[in-house]
Design a protein around this nucleic acid. Structure first.
Length: 483
RNA sequence: GGCCCGUUGGUCAAGAGGCUAAGACAUCGCCCUCUCACGGCGAAAACAUGGGUUCGAUUCCCGUACGGGUCACCA
């Protein structure tokens, strides 16, 4: 049973997809909780009403389920600190915002958006001029009664320094003069992230706030909020960002222009959830024993500690993900491989074709399921190819030798009726012997003849076995006719 | 631009004052092999820079450069 000594949360806003950087944050947050036998909470931060996306929460829940990140409290599973969707907690935020005003740590602001825009035009780096900070209680009361729209702003100290200790980055200090009187409660009555996450984290008993390092510099403002309420500050765990490399070689926050960056895009592209999870676990964290790179979720739960988290951002490397994926695919039990690979086979493969044998050739040669279509295309239809493919130095095949070998192979193969790999191998080997060439020479020519390619999933005889007698012989004859 | 953070091979990274500076991906070579892949062996490849501190700095401190983040009624 989960304890509450360590309580973490994953608090995404429902955008409609799960960014891989977000997924890693969820993973680390989960691992920190689980490592201590603690509680992991899912909370949906949907306070931006203009960016609401239908069904987005389901995507988040499904993704977490797909990778095995089970949460103890949250939408769908409940808990004692709910509701876990911020839009359902509006009265709570309003109450606490007003309490902050009463405590003198926040104030009503009646400035219009037009005024703020004008301010920004006059001085781009100026920020809000605190126009309403010192309104008299009478003025506030009058405006409120007149129904003038308002926001509630946090009253920042104007001098001194605020600092906190981050578990990854160490002490972070900020001059209070740098801090803006940020908005806590918007005019539409919804709170801003800056406010509600603090209220929720406190109310939900979150002990470790785990999030991306883009929050590193705004955290002093949040710490001040805890102080104003008289609440104990949580531990902060900021994570290094995940970067992508652009075509021009520059790196920046991983985004769509870097390729598939959402979990579901990656899965759709043929990556296994376990491989994705394993790979991203290692982006920004390294176990004490750093030789092994393969970890299951439960192994990670046992191993993960915050001091293994790195400070510097890491570049997402699709090559290495592909390698991990290949490793995971190769470790799949064959039936499982078939189940996952079959949807990627072209729908219009010849009926006679032995799909099981084809899949057995593919298993072990596939790093990503999306490669399958291209790899097996020649089974469906022989691609156009040129006789210049035949000459090959390593196998000692000359332009003159090729047609001779093809003719010999065709003759020998049309004489047999048993059509399995062993028989084909034996027959072709003896053809090679009779012709006085190394066996590689004949296999090389036959492979090209039946596939139109020099690189195929499986050897020449394996391909022919799958292709079947009739089609194989037809392709052999066609090849011979090219000369 | 102000503020904050970071900087070990192309990439992920170990290292936590004294090491021939791990390992993995990618690259290249050799072997295995009916091609490719897998597997095995091997090669090339790094402590951004200038000052300190120290008997000794990749490791500690300061500056510089470069990179990133952040400055919303978005989260």
């Amino acid at each position: 049973m989960a304890n509450r000594n360590t309580v973490t949360r994953f608090a995404p806003s429902p955008t409609g997809y799960m960014h891989i950087g977000n997924l890693r944050t969820a993973l680390y947050s989960y691992l920190i909780a689980r490592h201590g036998g603690g509680t992991f909470i899912l909370r949906i931060e949907d306070t931006d009403r203009e960016r609401l996306v239908e069904g987005a929460t389901d995507v988040i829940i499904k993704t977490l389920a797909d990778v095995g990140l089970r949460y103890d409290e949250g939408p769908g599973v409940g808990g004692e600190h709910g509701p876990y969707v911020q839009s359902e907690r509006r009265e709570i935020y309003k109450k606490y915002a007003e309490e902050l005003v009463a405590r003198g740590a926040a104030y009503y602001c009646f400035c219009t958006k037009e005024r703020l825009e004008r301010l920004h035009e006059e001085d781009e780096n100026g920020g809000y001029d605190r126009h309403c900070r010192d309104l008299s209680p009478e003025e506030v009361k009058k405006n409120l009664e007149a129904g003038i729209p308002y926001v509630i702003r946090q009253k920042m100290p104007t001098e001194g320094v605020t600092s906190y200790v981050d578990e990854v980055f160490g002490e972070i200090s900020t001059e209070n003069a740098e801090l803006q009187d940020q908005i806590l409660l918007k005019a539409d009555g919804y709170p801003t992230y800056n406010f509600c996450h603090v209220v929720d984290d406190h109310l939900m008993g979150v002990t470790h706030v785990v999030r991306g390092s883009e929050y590193l510099t705004s955290t002093p403002k949040y710490a001040l909020l805890y102080d104003a309420f008289g609440w104990p500050r949580p531990h902060y765990v900021h994570l290094p960002l995940l970067m992508g490399r652009g075509e021009d070689g520059t790196v920046s926050k991983l985004s769509k222009r870097h390729g598939a960056v959402s979990f579901q895009d990656l899965v759709a592209a043929g990556y296994l959830p376990e491989a994705i999870l394993n790979y991203i676990a290692l982006l920004g964290w390294c176990p004490k024993e750093s030789e092994n790179e393969f970890f299951t979720l439960s192994e990670l739960e046992a191993l993960f500690t915050i001091d293994g988290v790195s400070k510097s951002p890491s570049v997402f490397d699709y090559e290495k993900l592909l390698w991990f994926n290949g490793e995971y695919i190769r470790r799949l039990p064959f039936p499982k491989f078939c189940e996952l690979a079959t949807p990627y086979l072209p729908a219009d493969l010849p009926k006679a074709l032995d799909k099981d044998k084809l899949l057995s050739l593919l298993a072990g040669r596939v790093s990503c399921f999306s490669e399958i279509g291209e790899k097996v295309a020649f089974f469906r239809e022989l691609p156009a190819y040129d006789v210049s493919l035949f000459p090959n130095k390593k196998n000692k095949v000359t332009p003159e030798l090729a047609p001779t070998l093809l003719a010999a192979a065709e003759e020998a193969l049309s004489a047999i009726s048993v059509w399995d790999n062993d028989t084909l191998f034996t027959v072709l080997s003896s053809v090679a012997e009779a012709a006085g060439v190394k066996s590689g020479a004949i296999f090389w020519c036959v492979r090209i003849a039946v596939s139109g390619k020099t690189v195929t999933p499986g050897g020449a005889t394996e391909i022919m076995e799958v292709l079947g007698r009739e089609e194989s012989l037809a392709r052999l004859a066609a090849a011979r006719a090219k000369f």
